[in-house]
Design a protein around this nucleic acid. Structure first.
Lengths: 333, 333
DNA sequence: CTGTTAGCGCGTTCAT
DNA sequence: ATGAACGCGCTAACAG
């Protein structure tokens, strides 16, 4: 591999001059610049990014820690992050936290030790205090999907309570009264927020929240399956089910169909997240959008602006959910 | 940040000794080692990986280029790669190729310029020749999902032809004769291989391949939707549909259900890939497994063995598909 | 077993 | 505008 030294010899200039044309932050006369450029081209010179990092104390890498790399969310998010960052020649290093406090912290340490210039975190097991302390460290962080008052300028999040409200409000406006709710696990903030929204909608319509009609799921398909099986054993009238995730809604619907219960004729459904898959199956799932890809992009822009001092980007941190009406709900009989 | 120098001073030894205990490849007396360890601990010393990389000419990073970061495949694959590599303290840098030749090449260049020690590639737009040439370069590469004879020891792949055969053979064994086939795009090798397997199965059962019953899809849900809508306009008897991907199968099934066609009673279906989602909906999709996560893991192990000279791993490069029977097929009426 | 010394490839003062 | 020299933090001979 050709180095800056080879280029300097061929161009008949000093090392420093070559470095200058590379970073073109200092004035270099046009003709020496051209000589250097020619030399670089004829040698097929590529800068050694490792050496650049060491000398400049900037690795041009940003670490991304998500709870899981698979599933319907993180893919789109990673896509946006990678795309937004690569155009600025930054690279992304990934790590998975697996929703486990120890692993999430290990992931953070790992990424920091890797010399990342910034961290984009989608974590759920670590405490607010940990994150606040972390944000005072040397490596800047942005949080996706989490709102912490003390460091709100580093948070990119969705108004989950509002989304939960919208889902249930929609069912109520259709005329439903007997509404079951399948929530996410209560240790997750977004699950709690969505549930709160659900309860607020019920209250506003003077419908009592029946704890028996609430099942704590896990956001995954089989959580929805378990939930629906349980709800069916209750022998209570249920005309609509609001699910805190599309995955749970899909699982729950499959249980109904297998029991000969028609959707939406017998029971209406609405999910949350607006993941792609359920829009292609039958019935097409109504849902509340969770613009996870937008949030990924925004987090990347935050890094570009705050860490790499890119002037032209502007960031927006709070996202509003949106209702998508398709074919999985109708008025009660 | 404390450096190796600070540690050496505090421990009263030389720089080299500190370096030795870090890499513990040379013998160091137990008590000096302990002194160094204590000094490191009390300083909270963390090695600077950038400097290590520069000095050792090894970045401990491996680049992963996939066509897309989202969708049901690459998530599980990335998970395995990340997990396998992280335990060995290697980090993964990601890039997306978007199934486009230019972008795939740019991605490769990007990762190489980032000093990756090795590349794991899941590419489909670049030519075999390009990859063969690339494999002769300085950065070792492994290919996932692609078989190239000249560099087969660098390929981790699935026997797609066999899988295609199995899917159709299964339908034939159920008694189906009027079998439609929804393929992937013909410019992709795996799509062609799966189709070949389909044709071989038909031939073995003396069933003629009817080109009219073959629709070239795109592996995605809407490809299956388009395909099924087209097949239905044919007014030909069709009792079974073999799809080259679960996503297309799901799209196709949704079209049937909307037309009041029952699955599997009226038309049987089988997909390919064994992605999670369709196992949670109704009807549960029969399919051929595509162990993409296993392949990801194997690629990571290949890198560990061939690049980082890890002795204990053994790699296997050829994967066999497997038939999964669930609820989307039955004998014809 | 341990210390000395030279790089790794590049950025960045200082001079000039 | 350009060059010389030093330093980033660490590894790897080479001595001893």
């Amino acid at each position: 591999m050709a180095t800056i030294y080879d280029v300097s010899v061929l161009a008949g200039v000093s090392l420093a001059t070559v470095s200058r044309v590379m970073n073109n932050n200092t004035k270099v006369s046009d003709k020496t610049k051209q000589k250097v450029l020619d030399a670089m081209a004829s040698l097929g010179y590529k800068p050694n990014t490792i050496a650049q990092s060491l000398a400049s104390n900037c690795s041009n890498s940003v670490g991304v820690l998500v709870s899981q790399l698979d599933g319907p969310f993180y893919g789109p998010m990673m896509t946006q992050i990678e795309t937004s960052l690569r155009v600025e020649n930054k690279h992304v290093i990934i790590a998975a936290g697996h929703s486990d406090e120890v692993q999430e912290k290990e992931g953070v340490d790992f990424l920091i030790s890797r010399g990342c210039d910034a961290l984009i975190l989608d974590v759920e097991a670590v405490s607010d205090e940990y994150l606040i302390t972390l944000s005072n460290g040397d490596t800047p962080i942005v949080l996706i999907n989490r709102y912490i008052e003390a460091i709100k300028e580093r948070c990119v999040y969705l108004e989950n309570e509002q989304g939960g409200y919208m889902a249930t409000d929609y069912m109520l406006s259709l005329g439903h009264k007997n509404i079951a709710y399948i929530s996410g696990p209560m240790y997750k903030l977004d699950a709690r927020d969505r549930l709160r929204g659900h309860q607020r909608a019920l209250a506003e319509h003077n419908v009592l929240f029946d704890p028996e009609l609430w099942f704590e799921g896990n956001f995954r398909e089989f959580g929805g399956i378990d939930a629906m099986q349980h709800l069916l054993t209750l022998n209570k009238p249920i005309s609509a089910v609001v699910c805190a995730s599309d995955q749970m809604a899909s699982g729950a619907i499959s249980v109904c169909l297998e029991h000969g219960i028609r959707v939406p004729e017998d029971i209406s459904f609405i999910g949350y997240d607006n993941i792609p898959f359920p829009t292609y199956i039958s019935p097409k799932l109504n849902t509340i959008s969770n613009p996870i890809h937008e949030m990924g992009k925004m987090a990347a822009l935050w890094v570009l602006k705050e860490v790499y001092k890119d002037k032209k980007v502007s960031v927006e941190s709070c996202f509003s959910p949106q209702l998508f009406i398709r074919g999985s709900a109708c008025p009660p009989k």
